[in-house]
Design a protein around this nucleic acid. Structure first.
Length: 859
RNA sequence: GCGGGAGUGGUGAAAUGGCAGACACGCAGGUCUUAGAAGCCUGUGCUUCGGCGUGGGGGUUCGAGUCCCCCCUCCCGCACCA
């Protein structure tokens, strides 16, 4: 007790919280120990936990959204360490991409240099944030050959398996950049770098990955992924867009040599109502027919031009439906009717077969089109056989039947779909089919700063390969290195094509001259499997060791922004399945659980330079400290919701941290002394005979432990976790005088402060480490065992029971915590206010929820 | 149009079907100070003091912010997908 006395006269110096002093001190210590955050080996005997946050693009500056993402992951990683898990917590850089080339153009800095410099800057920021990444063991930089060579290696495997192939396809092309753009780089139909330049569609030879081979598995797997948000799964379902339907062949009249038009429909049951066939303007037959029909050619030309314009202004969805008759007809194989063939602008060339049968009576678009052009409308579906009048178009199918459909009349729609498809198949003019919205993944990019595609074109050709034919490089030729010396200009295609040392090589088969593929891979290739590389980042013999990957995978928790719900998260699922089929890994899916955090917004809007509402993490840290900044990011909203960044809020959290610091610092000597004298017995004696103030502190303490422990296991409402810590600290502060006066035992004081610091460790690592040290704590704080909540100690001794009469609150009564139903009833009925409320009424029944409330129902 | 999410004080938000607004921010008053800042203390949904209040309207229930049905508004994603 003597020490407590001494503290009163102690100098104030130690009690002033100064993050600018504490944080660099601890950062330096942590940085000095490369193995601090290293994962242990497979045989550590501990359960494993793979905690992963999405890797950033090295733009050079972390933004506040990163801070939020990493604060969540870091809190989780530290918590899992304290729970005794073997934690893998890696970080890397998604380092290829166009911004590096743009920077090269603007500043005349080589992309590699620019990128590596940015990485260094951002790593400094991440260290300043105190993030617990195992840099030495895991850091992956995708633009370095030791990583991208394995992109090439896997690509070659895909070529071998027929999963990578070359075909001609439409791409976004910026005439000013003279390069292909990714869809994300087309903004409102214009180039992101040339705001007034309209992006064109060009036909180019491209490399594709056969993701569609896995379409069914990718789709069906979504039903078995309860750890992924419903939103993401739904987005992926829509993206894959599987739809079941039927192909039906319509023979073109009087053109025996022309192949039949195959239409795709999901409603073959309506086929007796088909009054025309509609072709996409890009359909092969249309291309044929325009050769001999100048008028048709002109109409189609105009249609394509309008479509292009609409796509460019972004309102392709609202374009007016129009079409032109080809003057030709085709035969409906189900009823032998002859129907006109039209070309229509609303038929998509790359969905289904690019041709449909038009059934105006039972499809809204077809109806609109038929009205405009006066095409026949023939009703063949009705809710029942004796329906008279019916508003058209009528699109019901579940409780509808076929009418005026020959032998099918009277059949239920859904059954008819099945039977008619089978009928078509038996008679050789159609079959059941499945269509996907998902397309094969075009990975070719006419850019410099990406992974070179490890293929060459044999100039003279050789046995089995024509002149200019494509030849895969052998594994021994990897990596195909990106040339360092390169001039990036705005004109003329892929920059790699202008580097003779790169371009010209020899054919690995015949030894003759060959030219390299000058396209590079889409950067989404890099991010499709980087998290496997983390498990074995230094391996120079293979992408990774299967045994290591199999130990760590699947990822236990993946955390990132929802903006990657489609591209990255589908591609990496695809990649996982390919690697599984090659035998590299065993898991079917990359991540067990996925968490998508909300956006950080300011003044109600997404942060952007143009709006001038960007918050700089560095600013926040220098003003309020890392701990306060990180804690605010977790405190201001639950992590899955959008977060409105308010600087006053950061200041508030900073004041809270200062209070924690002052109080803990002040009582640290008590903790130290108790620790020296009693060690492990502190807890036991703290829980023994207690003053009311001490008992209350211990009770709140254990309620707080319980709350935080539970939330980490799934709910993740860190905002209320931090609120719970604030409640605890408020109570400690309210008890300060009592503690000074000796109303609280030193053991209790020691227990309370030690536990408080442990609870704070995942959220505010710097100040927690500092206070841990001041309290004489040894060892690394985030490896200390997480405190265990004791339900007995957490239980209130008294409870407050709201008393309702007919569901309306009348009074709140206080009772002993162990009061049973009868006791609650007696106490409630004896309360004056309740008595007056019951006067002249009959009690119908009384509902008592033990420990919660009582409701008296009267008449 | 389809799909997903949200709507609660001046603000961010809290609340297993059981006391709506915890915890903060802001604001107001007080205290300390030569003064300010920082602390600290008190108050803070609305109210005609009866009550009324979780976007609106119905329903289930002893009891609804929470569950069910209908509607409105906002945000996000996809969108002429046959």
């Amino acid at each position: 007790m003597a020490d407590v006395e001494k503290i009163e006269g102690a100098p104030e110096r130690d009690n002033r919280y100064n993050p600018a002093e504490i944080e660099p001190k601890w950062q330096a210590r942590w940085d000095a120990d490369e193995t601090l955050y290293a994962a242990e080996s497979h045989d550590s005997g501990k359960p494993k936990f793979y905690c992963l946050e999405m890797l950033p693009y090295p733009s050079g500056q972390l933004h506040i959204g990163h801070v939020r993402n990493y604060s969540i992951g870091d809190a989780l990683a530290r918590f899992m360490w304290m729970r005794g898990y073997n934690v893998l917590h890696p970080m890397g850089w998604d380092a290829f991409g166009l911004p590096a080339e743009n920077a090269a153009l603007k500043n005349n800095t080589p992309p590699r240099e620019w990128t590596l410099k940015n990485i260094e800057q951002m790593k400094v920021q991440m260290r300043r944030l105190g993030l617990s990444y195992d840099w030495a063991g895991t850091e992956v930089t995708t633009c370095l050959p030791d990583y991208y060579r394995w992109n090439q290696w896997i690509f070659l495997k895909m070529v071998e398996l027929g999963l990578a192939y070359r075909k001609s396809s439409k791409v976004n092309w910026c005439p000013d950049c003279a390069t292909v753009l990714a869809n994300e780089q087309v903004v409102g139909g214009c180039c992101w770098r040339h705001e007034d330049t309209i992006v064109e569609q060009r036909e180019l030879q491209q490399w594709f990955l056969r993701i569609t081979k896995y379409a069914d598995e990718l789709l069906d797997g979504l039903d078995k992924m309860p750890g992924w948000p419903e939103k993401v799964r739904t987005m992926q379902r829509n993206w894959i867009g599987r739809s079941h339907g039927t192909h039906v062949d319509f023979q073109v009249t009087a053109m025996a040599n022309t192949p039949p038009i195959t239409v795709f429909t999901t409603r073959v049951d309506t086929i007796f109502g088909a009054t025309s066939v509609q072709l996409a303007p890009e359909h092969a037959l249309v291309k044929e027919w325009v050769k001999t029909d100048a008028q048709l050619a002109a109409s189609v030309e105009e249609m394509l031009a309008q479509q292009k314009a609409a796509r460019e202004t972004g309102d392709i969805g609202n374009i007016e439906k129009h079409g032109v008759s080809t003057g030709k007809t085709a035969v409906n194989p189900f009823n032998g009717e002859t129907v006109p063939i039209w070309v229509a602008n609303y038929i998509l060339a790359d969905y289904g077969t690019g041709a449909i049968m038009s059934v105006p009576a039972h499809d809204e678009r077809d109806f609109e089109f038929a009205m405009k052009y006066g095409l026949a409308v023939k009703r063949v579906i009705a809710p029942s056989l004796d329906t008279d009048e019916l508003a058209l178009p009528y699109t019901g199918e579940e409780e509808a039947v076929l009418i005026e459909s020959g032998e099918w009349t009277g059949e239920a729609c859904l059954e008819a779909q099945d039977k008619m498809a089978k009928f078509a198949e038996q008679h050789g003019f159609g079959k059941k089919t499945i269509t996907y919205r998902l397309k094969d993944w075009g990975v070719s990019r006419q850019r410099y700063w990406g992974t070179p595609i490890p293929m060459v074109y044999c100039v003279n050709g050789h046995d089995g390969v024509p002149a200019g034919g494509v030849v895969a490089l052998p594994e021994s030729a990897l990596p195909v290195l990106l040339p360092e010396k390169i001039e990036i200009t705005q004109e003329g295609g892929s920059p790699l094509g202008k580097v003779p040392e790169f371009l010209n090589t020899t054919c690995p088969v015949c030894g003759g001259p060959a030219r390299r593929e000058t396209d590079t891979m889409d950067t989404f290739v890099d991010s499709s499997w980087y998290f496997y590389r983390y498990t074995d980042a230094k391996n120079d013999k293979a992408p990774f060791d299967s045994e290591k990957a199999n130990y760590w995978f699947p990822i236990d928790q993946y955390i990132g922004g929802v903006e990657h719900a489609i591209l990255h998260l589908i591609y990496s699922r695809f990649w996982t399945k390919v690697m599984r089929d090659i035998g590299m890994i065993k898991n079917d899916e990359p991540a067990e659980r996925l968490f998508t955090q909300g956006m950080v917004i300011k003044d109600g809007a997404k942060m952007s330079k143009s709006k001038g509402n960007v918050v700089s993490p560095d600013d926040m840290i220098s003003r309020y400290g890392t701990d306060a900044t990180r804690m605010y990011a977790l405190f201001a909203a639950p992590p899955d919701r959008d977060l409105e960044w308010q600087e006053e809020g950061v200041a508030g959290v900073s004041r809270f941290v200062a209070r924690v610091y002052r109080l803990t610092s002040k009582f640290a000597p008590v903790v130290r002394q108790m620790e020296a004298a009693h060690g492990d017995e502190i807890a036991a004696s703290a829980f023994a005979a207690q003053t009311p103030v001490g008992a209350k502190l211990i009770r709140t303490l254990h309620q707080t432990i319980a709350k935080i422990t539970e939330d980490f296991s799934g709910r993740w409402h860190f905002n209320t976790c931090i609120a719970a810590i604030m409640i605890l600290v408020n109570e400690i502060q309210a008890s300060e005088a009592g503690m000074d006066a000796g109303d609280v035992s030193p053991a209790t004081i020691a227990e309370v402060f030690k536990t408080l610091v442990l609870l704070l460790a995942p959220f505010a690592p710097f100040v927690a480490a500092e206070l841990w040290e001041q309290m004489g704590g040894t060892g690394v704080l985030f490896r200390q065992p997480w405190p265990v909540a004791d339900a007995e100690l957490a239980r209130e001794s008294e409870m407050e029971i709201p008393v309702q009469v007919n569901g309306k609150l009348v009074v709140v009564i206080k009772l002993a915590a162990d009061a049973d139903e009868e006791a609650i009833k007696v106490a409630a009925m004896g309360d004056e206010k309740v008595i007056s409320r019951l006067e002249g009424k009959t009690v119908v029944k009384t509902i008592v929820i033990k420990g919660k409330m009582i409701n008296v129902v009267v008449k």
